[in-house]
Design a protein around this nucleic acid. Structure first.
Lengths: 126, 126, 126, 126
DNA sequence: GTGGTCTAGACCACA
DNA sequence: GTGGTCTAGACCACA
């Protein structure tokens, strides 16, 4: 199984799950239309409470990445928007890693980087 | 007064204070050796709980940016490390803003960017 | 075959079946006295669990739309009430669609519309 | 207090809360910028679990109706979009009630109305 | 005090 | 079996 969770990370478990499922989808390990593991199944695999998995699935549904059929399970949509953006996502991720590296050499705290991302996001939004 | 905080920002108030004092120092608005406002004074100016200001000052002292003389107040150190790094800080901040902009066009959520900064920080650290 | 269900719809499958059989009846595609497919046959055609078809048939029988003759099958009744109401049903359906359209322009969520239908139904009932 | 919940309604409690807060806002009983009761406070008033209130608040935040300041509480935004749409909302609500009434006279089940709202919503979306 | 996350476990409608 | 809702209660960072 390729689902994994880090309980020591500051990122909430349900967000880790969201990011990971997106990543698996982008990498082609999960395919459009494919059935995801049931909430109970996944929760027992990654040793996390079913509610936590449910929260992740609901957020993914809100984002249009997955949909649920009542009584049958949860499936990936045919939404290919994510797939198309995959290369640029990768690039952004890499450049971000580089910036983090340089920040460390400058003595810039992680919290300050996070704050800059926050403020930049607000600016961009308006 | 130039101290200002945004209670609506997701960045904790005490961190906003830390970042701002650093910024004022880098920009030369606050100078080495200068006396900072007392905790009570500052907290009444920016309408924040004194504990919050105190927490910011403690962290800045831990970072060697300020020091306290009992009964006299808190002062900026002569630490010039921050000043030397000013241009690179600026550059990192700008590049970060650009990445945020591109992320938005890719449909990458802010939470995902924050998570990438987290994971990259962990990698770098080890 | 004209029976079709949408597993992605939030409407329960057995309700979709009910509505569809009524619709086929109203449109004259199914006629009074006509024999409906057996549970097993229909379930294999529309790829649905036999229990689901059974539940739909039971509800239709309860409503007096169909009746069962043991060992012979299920048949549509001569009940013409549905047929008489056909034009008004159509009109209501159309007006509902218009309201949904206007709602969207107002930013009213589907969930809110559904809730209003619920509350209005309760009022009317009492 | 004006917050009230009907545990017997088929509408989930957290959705009832969402609708009610919107309604109170539209009617001017709650005003922009005003502080909402804390999660714990409200949950004890309406005798509902804090998690349920939290879920409602989070959805309202996602919709841009409220925002939270960490450690301080939850507040209504200055978003006036809802207020501007108030009259049309009212009208739609009333027309919906009328349709429900007519439906009852036609023998149309509540479930069928709900289904029509669902299908119309899908059509409109695409 | 505030909200956010998480666990454990119940009950429900639906397939 | 499936997901959705809800309760009870813990722990956390922050103000």
């Amino acid at each position: 199984m390729f689902y994994r969770i880090d309980t020591k990370s500051p990122t909430p478990l349900y967000e880790q799950l969201i990011f990971q499922i997106k990543e698996l989808y982008i990498q082609g390990i999960l395919e459009p239309g494919e059935k995801l593991p049931s909430i109970r199944e996944l929760s027992s695999v990654i040793l996390v409470n079913p509610n936590t998995v449910s929260k992740a699935y609901q957020e993914l549904e809100r984002q249009g990445i997955i949909y649920t059929e009542r009584g049958r399970g949860t499936f990936l949509t045919d939404n290919t928007a994510l797939l198309e953006k995959a290369p640029e996502r990768m690039e952004i991720k890499n450049q971000l890693r580089e910036l983090v590296l340089r920040s460390r050499r400058c003595g810039i705290a992680k919290s300050e980087l996070l704050h800059w991302v926050e403020t930049a996001s607000e600016e961009v939004q308006s």
